[in-house]
Computed example of a mutant assay.
Amino acid sequence: MTPKTEAELAQMIAGANAPLRIQGGGTRPIGSTAGEVLSTSAMSGISLYEPGALTIVAGAGTPIEEVEKTLAADNQRLAFEPMDHRALLGTSGTPTLGGMVAANVSGPRRIAVGACRDFMLGVRFVDGAGNIVKNGGRVMKNVTGYDLVKLMTGAYGTLGVLTEVSLKVLPNVETVGTVMLHGLNDEKAVAAMSSALGSPFEATGVAHFPKAASGDPLTMIRVEGFEASVKYRAGRLQELLKPFGEATFEIGDQGAADWAAVRDVRSFAGQEGDVWRVSTKPSDAAGLVAKMDAKAVQYDWGGGLIWVLSDAGRDLRSAVGPFDGHATLIRGSSDIPTFQPEATALAAITSGLRAKFDPRGILNPGIMS
């Protein structure tokens, strides 16, 4: 099922008598769900782009690459740098705007500017009863009543099928620089990343590899902006981080490529095993990793996000026990639930929302169970 218009989509959902599996570009098969595939790929195209207003509106099936090229022509960008899951998950297809919003996909810059959800201005979608719903608009202060824009972002298609999204964009940067520390253990790396984030030097990416391509630990801190500003702030960061060791600095295209690899977790691509995405407090990160017996680890967001490569079929949640955060199984073929089980009170709220937006339970049933 590949509707070309919003009205056609509404008819398909209203007439459905069995579960539907919602799909954008098919690049992110996270979570298990049954049903006939309902693709939004044909509802594509940029309907409005106002560089002066920092606003873009496009169909849910619009390729992210098309959006990024359009923005780049006016020296603008999606500041939250959405991750491309294809290398990590071994998938093909084309990442779409709707899929990005449905999963709230964000990259390393989230620690500085916010997530996809924070840049959402408006949505149009079709709920599980076939009703067309619009919420939000084309400016930041436009929401009255229930903020369905935020609710739909990260709902994985369980509350409705997105047809159009409106996003705030930001200007691009002139230069990317990376300050690097070598040989730090996990605890010292988290402390160094926290120092960088707590400084006034505007780090826009902070990542750590216990075992980088060289085989040694590598800690990376990104600064962006005009070249003179980047060099100045990088120099100040190098001074700030001297208690952790001598820091090196690189500037230019290679740094941008390195951060794209961090964003897409390419170091795990093609490696056997399950991939977990763990969100927690940075201060807890090193202790959690010590319990994991992982094959490989990548820290992002200053330690607030941990990517873990583990043995296939191993329940990482059981291994680490209760902690302040959640673990999502991004890649794995076992019977382990994809998403962290919800607390009783939260599960009741979630169930109530789904009953309102999808009373028949046909939109991606079971995907977040």
Rank of each mutant, 00 (worst) to 15 (best):
E227R: 12
N17G: 09
V179C: 05
G136H: 05
A247K: 04
M83V: 07
Y156F: 12
L309T: 02
L121S: 09
G93E: 04
G98Q: 10
G145N: 03
D311G: 15
A247H: 09
G26Q: 03
D311N: 15
T70M: 02
P359F: 07
V139W: 11
L240G: 06
R233L: 14
V297D: 01
M140N: 14
A290F: 13
K295D: 14
P95A: 08
G235H: 05
A290D: 15
L181D: 01
A347M: 08
R28F: 08
A319S: 10
G287T: 07
L305V: 04
T94W: 02
G303F: 00
A129G: 14
V165W: 06
G160T: 01
I132F: 09
S199H: 00
I56W: 00
N17R: 15
G255F: 01
E65K: 13
A234N: 00
I330G: 07
V179I: 12
T5K: 02
T163P: 07
W276G: 03
V230H: 03
V308F: 01
G302W: 00
G325F: 00
T55M: 11
G61T: 00
T328Q: 01
H85M: 04
A290W: 12
V230Y: 01
A16T: 13
A102R: 01
G15W: 06
P82E: 14
L148G: 01
Y232N: 15
L329G: 03
T219A: 06
W301K: 05
R117L: 09
V133G: 08
H85K: 00
V149C: 15
L305R: 03
V143D: 13
L20T: 11
A10L: 09
A129I: 05
P108C: 06
